[in-house]
Amino acid sequence: MIRVVLADDEALIRGAVAALLGLEPDLSIVGEAGDGPAAVELVAAHRPDVAVVDLQMPGMTGLEVAAEIVTVHPACAVVILTGHSRPALLRRALQSGARGFVPKGSPASVLADVIRRVHDGGRYVDPALAAEALLAPECPLTPRELDVLRLAGTDVPVATIARQAHLSTGTVRNYLAAVVAKLEVATRAEAVAMAEEQGWL
């Protein structure tokens, strides 16, 4: 029997997925969580074989949960469920230690098969998403530029960003100017919107 922990902040979706997976003769749902920290606690307590984790949850993102689970219980394979099929998110999910990446619109039978596959040591990435990832442009921003943009948001003062990043205000302005130029947008707000849409932040 494959023991599964399921984490999703939407109770209706979580309950439906749990009910459908519970119909599989070789799968057993041993815990359900509504946020990231609770998911990590459940994995530590129940030591499941597989954790199915929503990408967007309060407290910790699915990527942060995956990275934490790999640390506290490396024998547990993580499958990320997502409504966002951006290629950059796929790369980040795999880097976090996730072994599966499945769109939320997939049939329950597909998710069940993915759980079995990762439990057996394999990996699974939705084929359409994998094709998109191969064609997607790489992020043109450096890690430091991304850090500054992440702190910047759309209207955070430069002085505040500088304090948080331990940089001078002039250096922050230079980073933000470089970001705007590289992304070929007119404003910082447009840069943030583009980076979020691409899954770079």
Rank of each mutant, 00 (worst) to 15 (best):
L20C: 04
V52S: 02
G36S: 13
A38Y: 07
Y175M: 07
C139L: 06
M60L: 14
I29R: 00
I69M: 15
E190I: 14
Q56V: 01
V79T: 13
K182V: 15
S28G: 04
D9N: 12
P127V: 10
G59Y: 08
E184F: 04
E10M: 05
S96G: 08
V78G: 08
K104G: 06
V70P: 06
A33D: 03
A38G: 15
P143K: 03
A16Y: 07
E184I: 06
R3F: 02
E132W: 08
G22F: 00
E197D: 03
D49Y: 00
A108M: 07
V43H: 00
V78N: 11
L55N: 02
M60W: 11
S109P: 01
L81N: 04
A18L: 05
L89T: 11
V53I: 13
M57D: 05
R144K: 13
V185Y: 03
G83D: 04
V43K: 00
Q56W: 01
M194P: 04
V70D: 14
V158N: 02
Q198F: 14
A33I: 04
V78T: 15
P25K: 13
A7L: 05
T169M: 06
D147E: 15
R92K: 15
L42V: 04
R163G: 03
K182Y: 10
I115F: 03
T160K: 09
T142Y: 10
T187P: 05
E68I: 15
P143D: 06
A88G: 11
T71W: 07
R14H: 12
V110C: 14
L141F: 05
V53C: 09
A39S: 10
L90C: 03
A159F: 10
E184G: 04
E64S: 12
R3L: 08
A177C: 10
A186L: 15
L20R: 05
A18K: 00
E197F: 03
A195S: 12
A33S: 07
R92M: 07
V158S: 00
A186W: 14
F101A: 00
L63N: 06
A7R: 02
A93R: 03
L21E: 06
V43M: 04
R86I: 06
H166F: 05
D9M: 12
G97S: 01
V118L: 06
R144W: 07
V72Q: 05
E32K: 06
R117W: 03
W200Y: 11
A181N: 14
R92N: 12
P74N: 13
A195N: 09
A44F: 02
K182G: 14
M1C: 08
H46I: 02
P87K: 13
A7G: 09
S109E: 12
A88E: 12
R14T: 12
D26M: 07
A45T: 11
P143Q: 11
S96T: 12
D49H: 07
L183A: 14
L21H: 08
P48R: 05
L146H: 01
A189N: 10
A45W: 10
R173S: 12
C76W: 02
L12E: 09
A16Q: 11
A98M: 01
A186I: 07
L141Y: 09
Q198V: 09
L63Y: 08
P74H: 11
V185N: 04
E190P: 09
D54V: 01
E190Q: 15
E184L: 07
A66Y: 03
A130K: 08
P74D: 13
D120H: 05
R99H: 09
R144I: 15
P25N: 07
